[in-house]
């Protein structure tokens, strides 16, 4: 962006001394407000875990820990078995991401480019699931996962219980299909003339062209699994299999406050780090996804 575009307030008004003073006053107010509302709670959490158990319960509270203890973080890591729960979460999120990319991409490609019989009906059926909010169906979904039809197997306490339902993501599938729709057919035909099969065309022509949308879908898939609570709470009754969010709530009752807070900080790090690394893309993706509907 070269020069900032015209917005609500005119540049002329901002150039005047009064306008400039007002601008900086508003600017400062927003900085303070954001720091207090969004950064301070996070600061309170990170430093709260470094206070001693006495200090964290003191009133009035101390703004900065008197002594910086890291022991709560170490205790959380060991006592709450955070490595295991973090690993469980990683396994669940990675598998859901991979299966979603493979199956949603393949299905979207078929619907967009291979004109299957009844393709319209299938697409309609998939889009209809957008009308049915996921959370409202958790109980029958749970019963299905607990006893799969025909094969009568239970997926409870198995990462597959997260992976497979994640594939049934109409929103991501539709995003992919719409992107594939915009790849001109001639590009694919050229590949076919060169003797590439359907799979090879998908792999070496369609996917390289689709990097932007695959990035968006990847982020949506990862964040959705990492942030989900109700579904893993239902599906993983075995403490050893629980992802970090569920484990935190289950263990929060009988653990010292500072240790719990330290565990909360640790649980937040992966997604916050992912966000800070990819923040430009995520911010742009949300804006684009939101306004395009």
């Amino acid at each position: 962006m070269s020069s900032s575009p015209r917005t609500l307030v005119s540049p002329a008004a901002l150039a005047r001394p009064r306008g400039r003073a007002l601008y900086w006053a508003v600017f400062t107010a927003v900085v303070v407000l954001f720091a207090l509302a969004f950064l301070f709670p996070v600061y309170w959490m990170v430093t709260g875990a470094m206070k001693s158990p006495d200090e964290v319960a003191r009133t009035p509270p101390t703004l900065v820990p008197e002594h910086w203890h890291l022991s709560a973080y170490a205790d959380a890591w060991d006592l709450m078995q955070l490595p295991r729960h973090l690993w469980n979460t990683v396994v669940q999120a990675a598998g859901a991401w991979l299966l979603q990319l493979v199956f949603c991409t393949a299905a979207a490609y078929a619907l967009s480019k291979l004109s299957p019989a009844f393709g319209k009906v299938v697409l309609g059926g998939i889009l209809a699931t957008l009308m049915v909010p996921a959370q409202a169906l958790v109980v029958p979904k749970y019963l299905t996962v607990a006893d799969l039809p025909l094969i009568h197997t239970s997926l409870l306490n198995d990462p597959l219980a997260v992976w497979l339902p994640a594939v049934a993501n109409a929103f991501n599938l539709y995003l992919l299909k719409r992107f594939f729709d915009r790849i001109p057919r001639e590009v694919l035909e050229a590949a076919e003339i060169d003797g590439a099969g359907r799979l090879r065309t998908l792999w070496s022509v369609v996917l390289p062209l689709s990097r932007p949308v695959l990035g968006v879908v990847s982020i949506f898939a990862l964040v959705a699994v990492w942030q989900d609570f109700l579904w893993p709470l239902m599906v993983f009754s075995d403490t050893d299999k629980q992802p970090i969010g569920v484990a935190l709530v289950q263990l929060s009752q009988n653990i010292p406050l500072t240790v719990l807070i330290a565990a909360m900080v640790i649980a937040s790090i992966p997604m916050v780090a992912l966000f800070l690394v990819f923040q430009r893309h995520i911010v742009a993706g949300i804006g684009a996804g939101g306004t395009k509907g």
Partner: peptide, 30 residues
Amino acid sequence: DQARAYAFLLGGLLCFALFSWYPAIRAVVI
């Protein structure tokens, strides 16, 4: 061609059938 198209669709369709369509019907039945 159709067989190939449905081979691509299969994984996704199975998951939708099992974890979206079937539970929606089942909610009403149960």
